[in-house]
Design a protein around this nucleic acid. Structure first.
Length: 558
RNA sequence: GCGCCUGUAGCUCAGGGGAUAGAGCAUCGGACUUCUAAUCCGAGUGCCGCAGGUUCGAAUCCUGCCAGGCGCGCCA
């Protein structure tokens, strides 16, 4: 349990016992004591912790909130942990604690290091997080980049709170668009010798297809001797493979590495679609109508039933998706999270229905909708359509804005926000970008450490410092902020809200920068110097920790 | 017509039952003989889209409306 959680628990117990005493003395009518929550006030003039218990209970016991709060406070103020209790506002009880608990925070940070804040809400549950999953017919774009940054960060957060997380990219390498892609590539190949060779009307017009055709010519001897059908198939398979390698590489440059790239083709080769149809049929969830086979998804709350096998005998995409999710479950995952774009929100009902039809609880599958990025350049919208062959790629984004800045920019917004990303602004502001602000805090501490080292000064273990000299307001603020990380992580995980970590990092860095200008570490008298050195080392640990959670580097110098 | 998301400072966004609604950017004014000025300190700005309702208390929950984005195929 985190230091903060323990404090809350102890205070809550004290409040409950105070209420008990009041009832025992007949100063309070007997009532059921509701759950006692302690919040950290926004305004630190309101203490370390605050309770609204008097406000909640006032009506039930027929007292004015402030009077009840006063009675409770009267009992609690004698407790050893508590320096001061105040009744404030409409009836809040504000607790000012002795500083000793802050020291425990430093010990926790020191002891846990880059594991600081880990929790066990996940209890080792095997969780599969699928994200990006862009079609392998074009380069990664900015929307994919947002999904990559958010998904990767969320995966790290979920792992930190105790889930056994695997990340996965689903490759649609079996759909019609891959055939179109193959035809596009072959046409570009032919055009290398015969510029008048027609390009398919629905083909992918991007320049990258031409580049690929040139590589095909150079790298695939014997291709020219194949017959047309073999060439087409080769273009499709080889081309898709190249695209996937390209995507993988772009993502690696973005510091996103998937545990698994799962190919739809695998499902077809294993006859997984036939199997899933049999399975659903045997469970009575399929029926025939108008020559098609339908999945009775409305039985599980979907808007309408879905066609599984079309009247022409072909499968719909839903069929493969059900087979895919079945496959995930068969691999032993008991929690599935997919991050999808807003154009897929209609997909939630049918897939959740499918998972239930396969015998799993409704909440086994969770679909997060990540809103689009509206990409602007100099304030004007940039169109991003693969069909039009016009887009800003992940590659361009990373080179223009930088990997760390781009990641932070995406992660700092909630999934729900319809994000405006102005490339010009991001590039211009790159020196003012919040990510540098955070990294700079880390670099500053590293610099202090470097100089300490040169002077032969070593960071003392927290157990050996005199923590009582850490009494500057900003030192208290720093420690309290560090104390918040474990809960912040749990909230970020539970709410699937990686942006909370981005905010947290900014807040911690902000307090540090202020501290840095107001207080010196080196050059102070030894006792203070050692305490501050240890404190600042803890701050560095936590900064590195949160940057790491976001997949952002923590530079020693800038 | 139905469904999902959004509407908060000049801009981009946090906050999603509690106390005086916040941050960054932008604007203005200050601070470097001392560990990195990519920093710090100070200043201003809000019918929290609108209207009702629930509550001791609503930016937050409920209902209706307005505006924007995205969906609603035997397309993927």
């Amino acid at each position: 349990m985190s230091v903060l959680a323990r404090q809350r628990q102890e205070l809550a117990a004290l409040i409950r016992s105070a209420l008990g005493q009041l009832m025992a003395r007949d100063e309070l009518p007997p009532v059921n004591i509701p759950e006692v929550t302690l919040e950290i006030p926004k305004d630190k003039a309101h203490g370390d912790f605050a309770s609204n218990i008097a406000l909640v209970l006032a009506k039930q016991v027929g007292m004015k909130p402030r009077d009840l709060a006063g009675k409770i406070a009267g009992i609690l103020s004698t407790h050893q942990y508590i320096e001061k209790v105040e009744v404030a506002g409409p009836g809040f009880i504000n607790f000012f604690l002795t500083k000793q608990w802050l020291y425990q925070v430093l010990q926790a940070v020191e002891a846990q290091g880059q594991d600081y804040g880990i929790a066990d809400c996940g209890q080792g549950e095997r969780l599969l997080l699928e994200f990006v999953s862009a079609n392998p017919v074009g380069p990664m774009n900015v929307v994919n980049a947002r999904a990559a940054a958010v998904g990767d960060t969320l995966a790290r957060i979920l792992a930190a709170v105790g889930y056994q997380v695997a990340t996965e990219y689903y490759v649609n390498d079996a759909g019609v668009q891959t055939e179109v892609f193959g035809r596009s590539l072959l046409a570009r190949y032919r055009q290398l010798d015969d510029p008048s060779y027609p390009f398919p009307e629905d083909g992918y017009p991007g320049e990258y297809v031409v580049e690929l055709a040139k590589r095909l010519q150079a790298e695939a001897p014997g291709f020219g001797q194949m017959d047309e059908a073999a060439q087409l198939e080769f273009c499709r398979k080889w081309g898709i493979d190249q695209m996937i390698e390209w995507q993988k590489n772009d993502l690696l440059n973005f510091n996103v590495k998937f545990d698994c790239w799962f190919r739809e083709q695998e499902l077809h080769e294993a006859n997984a679609l036939e199997s899933i149809i049999q399975l659903l049929n045997s469970r009575g969830f399929l029926y025939e109508q108008e020559g098609a086979l339908w999945f009775h998804s409305t039985a599980f709350g979907d808007d309408k039933d879905r066609v599984i096998v079309k009247s022409d005998g072909n499968y719909t995409y839903v069929t493969a998706d059900i087979a895919y999710h079945h496959n995930k479950l068969q691999r032993g995952f008991t929690k599935l999270i997919d991050i999808l774009g807003p154009d897929h929100h209609g997909y939630i009902g049918r897939m959740k229905a499918a998972v239930q039809a396969l015998g799993c609880p409704e909440d086994t599958l969770e679909i997060l909708i990540l809103q689009y990025v509206a990409l602007l350049r100099e304030g004007k919208p940039v169109k991003m359509s693969k069909r039009a062959g016009e887009f800003v790629t992940l590659e361009e984004l990373v080179s223009e804005v930088g990997r760390d800045a781009a990641r932070y920019f995406f992660v700092m917004r909630s999934l729900d926000s319809h994000l405006d990303f102005d490339l010009t602004l991001a590039a211009q502001q790159s020196n003012e970008n919040p990510v540098y602000y955070i990294q700079y805090a880390h670099a500053r501490i590293s610099s202090i450490m470097g100089q300490a080292e040169q002077q032969g000064i070593h960071v003392k273990p927290v157990a050996e410092i005199d923590w009582q000299v850490l009494d500057h307001e900003l030192e208290i603020d720093l420690i309290k902020k560090m104390a918040e990380l474990p809960e912040e992580l749990v909230e970020a995980a539970k709410e699937r809200a990686p942006h909370r970590i981005a905010r947290y990092a900014l807040e911690l860095a902000s307090i540090f920068h202020s501290y840095y200008t107001h207080c010196h570490v080196l050059g102070e008298q030894e006792k203070i110097r050692d305490a501050r050195l240890a404190l600042v080392e803890c701050v560095r640990t936590v900064l590195r920790r949160v940057l790491g959670l976001m997949g952002i580097s923590a530079p020693e110098r800038m």
